[in-house]
Design a protein around this nucleic acid. Sequence first.
DNA 1: GCATGTTTTTGACACCGTGTCAAATATACC
DNA 2: GGTATATTTGACACGGTGTCAAAAACATGC
Lengths: 199, 199
Amino acid sequence: MRPREFNHDDVLRIAFDQFWRKGVRGTSLSDIARDAGVQRGSLYNAFGSKEALFLLAYERYAGDYLIALQKALGTGSLRKRLTAFFDSTITNFRSGSPPRGCPTTRGLMELGAAEGEGLDEDARQAFANLISRITALVQDALSAGAKRGEFSGNPAAAALHIITVTRGLAVIERAFDDEPQLRKIAAHTIDLVLDKMGR
Amino acid sequence: MRPREFNHDDVLRIAFDQFWRKGVRGTSLSDIARDAGVQRGSLYNAFGSKEALFLLAYERYAGDYLIALQKALGTGSLRKRLTAFFDSTITNFRSGSPPRGCPTTRGLMELGAAEGEGLDEDARQAFANLISRITALVQDALSAGAKRGEFSGNPAAAALHIITVTRGLAVIERAFDDEPQLRKIAAHTIDLVLDKMGR
DNA sequence: GCATGTTTTTGACACCGTGTCAAATATACC
DNA sequence: GGTATATTTGACACGGTGTCAAAAACATGC
């Protein structure tokens, strides 16, 4: 057995950085190979395809991101938690220079581009999965808030609404490059959700 | 002068149909040329580049779409108008089979994929412009509603919130392919906006 | 220590995409 | 009818994905 000359995880990290900055379609395996100091053929040998490589790299990101959101949603009043949640979300979109946007949203929009081409069903599953898990986190926070009398609406519906807004923010971010606006929308959403019922 | 052998507008229509179904990156000029019965080189001669062709085709779409939304927002109570607005939006996302999603959102997410590559600044402007104009339409409807006592909040902030939700719906649509869910979120948003203040 | 087997690496290839260019072509106008 | 001008056409350069066989590097057994 000839030993592998590169570190699996290093390559995933380097690859996701490029995918995030330039999109999946906009990143070539040559780019990644150059950055990682690996031959392009070695990547095919190790991962099979660009999409498979992306999926592995994305799972890595998704795990880290979920943990960060969990932390943000963990302490304080419901209002504080939601504020921290939106804050983490926007900070994530706006990281890098120029800002890299939301990998999940950008990935989702590349789906089914050409007939069999582009990211396929596995990728859609991965994106949908992260969104579902984030929704569950928010719903839990709202349910906990409801128990403490900080909120009296339907946690499921409110969580879905909040998640939809975060997805919308990811789009608005690409359109206008106006971070204060994003934060204003987030604040307004929190007001809307918390002021409607209970509080 | 040798006369052009194809109809400009026909090609734009055919091209946008493909862009919408398969995304800008996922559509090749060969595809469009085949569909339109035109030589690929002729398209380069007539439009300059894929991006320029897309921009023309998109402007066509944007104009038609704005008119449709204007009509939806034109009559009835504020609640009825907003309902019709979300309805038009979702119907647009869900048109075609499989559903084609939102061209603006999908286009926005392809921006800045590779360094100088991908859709460039002109496209971003076009996307942002349509979003801005739609926002203005919604804001006008809210302002009118405010005058008639159907709404007592801040029209600008509420319009921005509603637009953000529609962008979020475009993302959720790609993730879950669940139209009833989209309509539920839309209804919930209307409730949230109209129940908060006034009404 | 050396031969063997297995995996990784490497480079060549086929194919498809964009965009450019010069040559051929078809018309309008004089 | 000849000429100018714009369009069409086909060849080309370049870069992307993915495949494949040959070369290379190590682990193992003798």
